[in-house]
Structures are given as C-alpha cells and as structure tokens.
Nucleic acid binder design. Structure first.
Length: 512
DNA sequence: TTCCGACAGTGGGGTCGCAAT
DNA sequence: ATTGCGACCCCACTATCGGAA
C-alpha cells in the first residue's frame, strides 16, 4: 500500500467531525491493507509509530526539504527507513539521522511530508486515535465493537488484536484472554467535586485512600513476578522490594492492581517527586532502593489462581484480594451504604488528608473491572485550593488554539511589589474565554516574540490547583501542581493578588 | 428531545538517562 | 562535565459526537 494513501485518508479523517465517518474511512483502509502492511498501517492511523523511540525531534524534521512530485513510497518503505533511522547510534549519529530524515522527506510528496511530520511529533490531530481505530477495525471485519475493545484491553495493544483479527477474522478474538504475565490496561477514575456528589452518583460504594504514587500491576506465576506501569511498561527490575512482597503472599498465581509509594519512617507519604524519581531509576537500583524504599499498596485483584475476576462485582474482587493480601499491604478503606453514610465517608476523607494522602476514590461495589476505560464507577475526590494570581505573559496556542493566546504565565506578589512566576496553565478556559483573553492580553502586550506575548501585570485570574511542589525552574523555588483557570477577576487589582509568602505558609510541608 | 458517556485535543511540571557538545 | 531532549510518570479541563433515556 502506498504511504500516500494513508496520508490522504488521515487528511480526510481530520476534515470530518463525524466519528461515524472517521470510522468508515478507517474501515475501508483496513480492509484494503495487505497482511504485511497491517502492523504498520494500524499504528500509523492511530497516530503512533510502531518503533517507539526514534531520536527524531522537531529540529531534524524542520529541514524544509523540497517535496517529491509524485508518490512512490510504500508504507513498508517508510517503516523500513524509520527503523534504520532509529538504529543509528554512536558519535555523529545525530548528523547521520538528520541526513536519513532529509532523504525520507525528499522522497515524500507534500501531503506525505505533512503526515510524516505529524506522526513523528505525535501530533496527527485527525480526531481519531486508538478508540476510533478500534471502531474502524470492528467495522472492517464485522466483529462486535465491544468484543474488539475488550480484546485490545486484554492484549494491552491494538496492534496484536488488529493483526489477528484481519488475518483470521472474528474467531481470533477468543485468543485474547486474561493471562498472568501479560499486562492489561488499568481501569481509570473520573473526578467528583465532593464525597457527597460521588455517593449521590454511585450509591453504595467503597471509599478508599488515594495515594500519590505510581500505579502498578503485579503479576505472579509461581516464582516469576512481573511489574507493569499504567502504560504497561515493564518495571520489574527497578522495584525488587515489590517482587519480594509479591512472593511473600499466599497465592501462587495472581494479578493485583495497586499503587507503589515511598513512605517515610513514620509511614507518611514522601513527596510524589521522590516516589517518581525512585520508580524512574534504572541504573543503580540498589542505591536508589536504599535511599528511597517503596511499598506496594493494593486495591484490586484481577485474577487469582487461574480464574479471571474482571467481570465480577468489585465487592467480590475485593473479597479475593483480602483473602490473598494482608491488611497492611491493602489500601485503607471504609464502606458507604448510600447517602446515610455521608458523614462517616467525609470523616474518612479528612483522616486520609491528615495522614498526608491525596484524597479518596469512591468505587461502586457492583461494578466490574473496566480495563482501559475511565469508567464512571470509580470517582476520585481531592481537595482543591485556589489563588488569585496575575498574568505575566501568554503563549500562542497550537492546533485548534492557533491564533489564540492560550498558555498563561502566572505570578504571585512578592514583598517588593514585583511578581514571581509560579508556573503556567492552559486549562479551564472555554472557547469564549480564549477569544476574550486573546483580545484583552493584546491590549496589555508590551512585547511579542512570536511565541510568548509579555503583558503589563494588570489582569487577575482565579486559579485552582492541587498542591505545591518544589521547583528548580521558578524563582520562588516552588510551582503549582495541575493549575487551571477558574475565572477572571476583573474586579480585583494586581495589588490584591495573593502573595508568595501566603502561598508558602499555606503549604508548610513543601519547604520543610 | 434532552442528557450524558466516551474521546480527542491542549498542553502543564518533574525525573531519568542517553547522546551530543 | 554539562546540556539538550525524548520518554514516562503524574494530571484537568472543554468540545463534540452519538447513543441512551
């Protein structure tokens, strides 16, 4: 199959907003793909590269090579060239990669260049990624979409399912079963603004501590233990204490879902940065493990002794978990049997926060484990802080925000009357707000370098954030975690904005 | 007809580790 | 030795489509 066809279809998908049409376009293309093309076409049209890391960044792509007049590249040509580029290592490899990328671009037409650029920068922007590709795959083969979706969750990848399905048809889906040692996409949670709202939606539910660590899926088959992250990366070698913990459990074969977190000697959580640094350390695991030991805390069981628990209600899965895992290694929890238990659930949240944790997750007791989905049966509740900050600058947006000032630089007052930047945010604005702030900020502009527009610090905005964390990037030594805009405060002057001092005082644990 | 679940898009900060300088 | 940068961790929020109610 010609690469140009993918480029054209991707463009057509991007041009329509109807998901049904996107699905139909993908299905037509999948049907026409030869067996050897499938492993390439599927990820490309889901906006991903099968090779993963290639060492090709914006710089290498931005060479302005004259495009070819006529399409000649096949998808297999492109794949082979990218594999070659990814395999170049050693001294001068960046220059060699640049040459190879240039040659590839020169062989591509203008449309193909554009699609390549999107693929390599992860910005395909066609409004269709894995989920729509799954729909297209179902349409192309006549398989029920729900069955395809489930197979993808259990395989942990679209790729494997697509190849089997296109080669062998619907019966191939039966091969994708929950298997110890093969990771499945984890179930995710929605947000609720309060415990009351969450209980209102779920009714009878478990209220569990939300730990600020790294999600981990633990597989044990006899003496073999494997650990996987949320994106199914294998991190077994980095966390030997988790392997030991899994081997101490009574069961021989199981899959557990939980969180790994670094706790201090009093059992209080260390900062997320410390936990993340530990989990990310690969080169000297022994030293890292000595300095920042981590603990597993489990909250779900997906498989025990060969039986698949995914479709069981959470209450039953948890009973299995409790049989297998002793209490200290399970997440703290309480039960709320509906709105009558609201007070005790709120007290549980308060106690959780006193213990230094992030918040709670409410989980419907009757819900199955919806692998890979952000199901509505798990709702996280975290306290939200707000500040009134001053806009110091704004950055021009990309994609659908092109031409709009999008990413705001936020500052807090300092004792000398100037403002210290605390971070940026692009979240929380509606389209109307984007339009309004673009106009307003241009009135306040003192400089525009084409990327950042610096403004007079006169506009006050109310910002919500989840907490404060240490930073080496910003002058106050701290930055806001997950900052988002709540509303503009044109009724407030910059002199009424919040101060760095007050912010630090509100989060003493960060600077201590 | 209205409501709401699921998706894609738009990026944020930090950390690690590799490659280039 | 330092620096640049990609890949992963954590993540919130809005717009939109299309099926459910």
């Amino acid at each position: 199959m010609l690469f140009a066809r993918l480029a054209r279809v991707s463009q057509e998908i991007a041009a329509t907003s109807a998901r049904s049409r996107k699905t139909a376009l993908l299905a037509e293309l999948f049907r026409d793909a030869e067996a050897d093309d499938v492993p390439i076409v599927i990820p490309y049209l889901a906006g991903r590269l099968p090779q993963g890391r290639l060492g090709i960044g914006f710089k290498l792509l931005n060479q302005h090579i004259a495009p070819a007049d006529a399409p000649t590249l096949t998808v297999r040509d492109v794949d082979a060239r990218l594999t070659e580029i990814g395999s170049v290592t050693g001294t001068g490899s960046q220059a060699e990669r640049g040459r190879l990328v240039g040659a590839l671009l020169a062989a591509a037409t203008e449309d193909e260049q554009r699609f390549l650029f999107g693929l390599l920068t992860g910005e395909v922007r066609q409004g269709a990624l894995d989920a729509v590709a799954v729909e297209g795959l179902a349409a192309a083969t006549g398989a029920p979409p729900a069955d395809v979706r489930r197979a993808v969750m259990l395989a942990g990848s679209l790729q494997a399912v697509a190849e089997a399905l296109l080669a062998q048809g619907t019966p191939a889906l039966d091969r994708f079963r929950l298997t110890v040692g093969r990771p499945v996409l984890p179930m995710l949670a929605h947000t609720a603004s309060s415990v009351a709202e969450g209980i209102g939606k779920l009714g009878s539910c478990a209220v569990e501590e939300k730990l600020d660590g790294i999600r981990v899926q633990v597989h044990r088959d006899g003496d073999a233990v494997r650990l996987y992250t949320r994106t199914l990366d294998d991190i077994t070698d980095r966390l030997p204490e988790l392997t030991s913990a899994a081997l101490e459990l009574k069961g021989e074969r199981f899959i557990l879902d939980g969180e790994v977190i670094a706790l201090d000697e009093r059992g209080r959580p260390r900062s997320f940065q410390e936990t993340a640094g530990r989990v990310g350390s690969r080169t000297d695991v022994a030293t890292a493990a000595r300095e920042v030991p981590v603990s597993p805390v489990f909250f779900d069981a997906l498989s025990v002794d060969g039986s698949d628990l995914l479709d069981l209600p959470f209450a039953e899965r948890h009973a299995e978990l409790a049989r297998l895992v002793p209490e200290p290694m399970r997440v703290r929890r309480t039960l709320a049997r509906g709105p009558d238990d609201l007070a005790s659930a709120e007290e549980f949240l308060a106690e959780t926060l006193r213990r230094g944790h992030e918040g709670v997750v409410l989980k419907a007791l009757d819900a199955p484990y919806s692998a890979g989905r952000r199901g509505a049966s798990w709702l996280k509740v975290k306290p939200v802080h707000t500040l009134d900050l001053v806009i110091l600058a704004a950055e021009w947006g990309h994609g659908r925000r092109t031409g709009k000032l999008s990413n705001l630089h936020l500052g807090a007052r300092t004792p000398d009357g100037s403002f210290a930047m605390l971070g940026k945010t692009f979240k929380g604005m509606t389209d109307a707000m984007l339009t309004w702030q673009t106009g307003r900020l241009r009135e306040l502009a003192v400089e525009d370098n084409g990327w950042v527009v610096t403004v007079r610090p006169e506009l006050v905005v109310e910002i919500a954030y989840d907490g404060l964390q240490r930073s080496t990037r910003y002058p106050a030594g701290v930055t806001l975690r997950f900052a988002r805009v709540v509303r503009y405060r044109e009724d407030k002057s910059p002199a009424e904005a919040d101060t760095v001092e007050a912010l630090l005082a509100a989060h003493p644990e960060v600077t201590r």
